[in-house]
Design a protein around this nucleic acid. Structure first.
Lengths: 215, 215
DNA sequence: GTCTATAAGACGATAGAC
DNA sequence: GTCTATCGTCTTATAGAC
């Protein structure tokens, strides 16, 4: 599509320097791909550096486009963030039903496996890192965290419990998993950072189960 | 305020613009208090906004001094941070021995009480918030976190356990407490954010104990 | 659809007057 | 000991050429 470099009509450049007017400009026809490249770059930077330290210019540079184009597509930095981390929601929506379904005395293991699994998968780990790194310092990101964890997941789990303190129990269980994510994946403290995921599940699932259905 | 304009000795100003040369300069005698005011302001801002979002100028403004004075005292922003959060270390150093002393089957409760107590006390909560908010996005702050939690506290607790997996056990116990701190104090998700601290200790201490000495 | 150019301002840090 | 003034670099965001 579109030969680009030389095929343009008004070829002789008016540019003051006489330098080539443009370099590796993409086809200009398939714009959908550009948007996704921006989102990939955004996800990578937000996950590695958090919201504040990530710049629109840095995202644009990593995506190979101009920073103005990022603003053109998304308007503000905050909208870029929301669009980038949106992909973390789908797996939760997909799996939350299978967490609450099944025997109640194994819900702790199912919940633990789901969360550890999401963090172990590089594709879902990036947006999760972005959310955690950003939720700690940014109100908009904290709202995303609450929507994802509390509203989408915990409420469902608590609904299965049939106890007056169900929500508190679900949240203490979540706290155990959030703390592991913080220490293992975010701050990376040994020996947890290098522990075998299956070993973690084996140790933690009973604790999560205890929070949910214990005495 | 500020007599300024006319009162200076060598009045005819060498300044190009002829504008007033200085404004409301304080006594210049009581310098020790100034340093502490800067640290108080730094602690407040680092805890509320995290490392990146906090500016040296903002700290200076809150302390009622010029930003150059902050650099004069501490050199770099990172050194300001370290000096500001240092006050979080003393209580840990003071209490860590009383955590490991006493019956082993109550070490979980002592550890839980210590951590919840530090977070419930406004004086120690501020530097802890600063460390957590910053450790997530800043390597220097992450190193402070590791030094505080892992090196100063967990190693001692693990030393009491006499098991090959003692360090991993101590860290999973810490993960439970870190997760509670994240959800209750940092991101503030209900109902944990408003739960009674004593209720939290009652629910969590057995879990921490189980991590440390359970099967 | 993609770019250049730039506005408008905050940042960390330094030099030097007093 | 405290300030003013400023350097050089970074930021988000906009206007407009092609």
């Amino acid at each position: 599509m579109n030969g680009v470099t030389a095929s343009d009509g008004p070829a002789a450049s008016p540019n003051g320097t006489g330098a080539p007017r443009r370099r590796g400009r993409p086809p200009a026809g398939e714009s959908a791909g550009t948007r996704d490249r921006i989102l990939d770059a955004a996800r990578e930077q937000f996950s590695a550096r958090g919201y504040e330290k990530t710049s629109v210019r840095g995202i644009a540079k990593a995506a190979g486009v101009d920073s103005a184009l990022v603003h053109h597509y998304f308007g503000t930095k905050e909208r870029v963030f929301e669009a980038a981390v949106e992909v973390a929601f789908q797996p939760v929506l997909d799996q939350r039903d299978s967490v609450v379904e099944g025997p109640l005395d194994e819900v702790g293991e199912r919940m633990t496996r789901m969360i550890i699994g999401l963090w172990e998968n590089p594709v879902t780990r990036a947006p999760l890192l972005a959310i955690v790194r950003s939720a700690v310092n940014n109100d908009a990101a904290a709202a995303v965290f609450r929507r994802l964890v509390a509203t989408q997941l915990l409420r469902r789990v608590a609904g299965q419990l049939d106890r007056p303190d169900a929500e508190l129990r679900a949240e203490l269980a979540a706290a155990q998993l959030v703390g592991i994510a913080m220490i293992r994946y975010v701050i990376r403290v040994e020996p947890l950072a290098s522990a075998d995921p299956e070993d973690i599940v084996r140790r933690v699932a009973p604790v999560v189960q205890g929070h949910l259905t214990g005495p």
